[in-house]
């Protein structure tokens, strides 16, 4: 098709833990859902993620954090994106996130949050419902 927007999504693995199986499985599921997924690998700083999101002109950034640092790293990415003109980029995340933290993260602009065991289709549905190609 000649002029159709295709969703571009950055999947990143910030922080120090090395468990990227989940991130890779999500990346694969998003590919199979027809999205273009930019996967940047392990040990990303919020600065690296924000820079990549801007250069790649993505519609959404998904982060996987297993180390418990989600309260610092996820809002940091939201803030950096806003500072660089990427406020329209939806931010979502997955990992071991206690219920108490979820509300706080949503308030800070992390729109979608997924815990272990979430069916992949739920993540895809969330993206289709909440992420639109940026103009």
């Amino acid at each position: 098709m000649s002029s159709t927007r295709k969703l571009r999504i950055l999947v990143a693995k910030p922080g120090l833990d090395g468990h990227d199986r989940g991130a890779k499985i999500v990346a694969r599921a998003l590919r199979d859902a027809g999205f273009e997924v930019i996967y940047t690998g392990l040990h990303q700083t919020p600065e690296m993620i924000a820079a990549a999101a801007i250069q790649e002109d993505v519609d959404a950034v998904g982060m996987s954090i297993m180390s418990g640092a989600h309260m610092v790293l996820m809002p940091a990415v939201v803030d950096l994106l806003r500072a660089r003109g990427g406020e329209g980029i939806a931010v979502f995340g997955g990992g071991i996130i206690p219920d108490d933290d979820m509300e706080a993260l949503r308030a800070k602009g992390v729109k979608g949050l997924f815990t272990p065991g979430t069916p992949l289709a739920e993540i895809v549905d969330w993206i289709n419902a909440n992420v639109t190609p940026r103009q």
């Binding site: 990346a27 694969r28 998003l30 590919r31 199979d32 859902a33 027809g34 999205f35 273009e36 997924v37 930019i38 996967y39 940047t40 690998g41 990549a52």
Partner: peptide, 8 residues
């Protein structure tokens, strides 16, 4: 869809 992994 695609997985674009060259940035890694």
């Amino acid at each position: 869809g695609a997985i674009l992994g060259d940035r890694i």
